[in-house]
Design a protein around this nucleic acid. Structure first.
Length: 210
DNA sequence: ATAATGATTCGCT
DNA sequence: GCGAATCATTATG
């Protein structure tokens, strides 16, 4: 890695208490510019988070745990913040969420896009040699590039044994935009809530702000 | 037991 | 821009 500030060994993990904050909208904003790493088979792939969305039960109709609906699938969202929520979407795509908030609050942050930084060759392989810009500019794309599957569901973040790690960016000052969330047309009044966050200067987002 | 439905992506027109 | 792909989850009977 030519940029020494991006040396994985020197990065600091996000503090465990950060995940317990009760406001997932705030956390989704603050996650822009931080680093996501997947560690599979001793191989690290990851990058800089450039797009997120907040989901917040009970009031959010777009949240799987709307009205605190508790099922086998949603149960992980009720855990204390700091775990993963990975689920299969449209029968094809695995989507990665970060569970946040205190135990009992079903909050999560969907990771929608990253800028690839680490393990570029492996990411390219997993994305079938497409252009780099298309490796991770969407929630289903980035899980494929990082090898994230349902095996990574309901697992702690930043533990020694973890496959998913989140690090603080040493000097992160991104210009963060907010926008309505994508793909939730069924969610009635929640459709317009500006709970999607993007790095305005990144070319690796899934779609520009409207 | 059956049926409906996605927090999407890709290829084709 | 449109439609297919593809299946775990969920609700309902």
């Amino acid at each position: 890695m030519s940029n020494p500030s991006l040396d994985l060994g020197s990065l600091l993990p996000i503090d465990p208490d950060w995940f317990l904050n009760p406001d997932p909208v705030r956390l989704a904003h603050d996650l822009i510019g931080q680093f996501l790493i997947s560690d599979k088979d001793g191989q690290q792939t990851g990058g800089r988070i450039v797009e997120t969305e907040a989901y917040k039960a009970p009031e959010d109709k777009a949240c799987h745990a709307h009205l605190n609906r508790y099922t086998k699938r949603t149960s992980v969202m009720f855990e204390a913040g700091g775990r993963t929520y990975v689920y299969l979407c449209y029968g094809i795509h695995h989507l990665l969420n970060i569970v946040t908030g205190p135990q009992g609050a079903a909050h999560a942050i969907l990771i929608r896009a990253i800028e690839p930084i680490w393990g570029l060759e492996r990411q390219s392989e997993r994305r079938s040699g497409r252009p780099r810009r298309e490796w991770t500019n969407g929630p289903g794309k980035l899980t494929k590039a990082l090898g994230i599957t349902k095996a990574d569901n309901n697992r702690p973040i930043n533990q020694k044994s973890s496959s998913i790690h989140l690090f603080r960016s040493p000097q992160s000052n991104p210009k963060v935009q907010s926008a309505p969330r994508i793909g939730i047309d069924y969610a009635e009044e929640c459709i317009h809530w500006p709970w999607r966050f993007l790095d305005a200067d990144s070319r690796f987002v899934s779609a520009p702000a409207p």
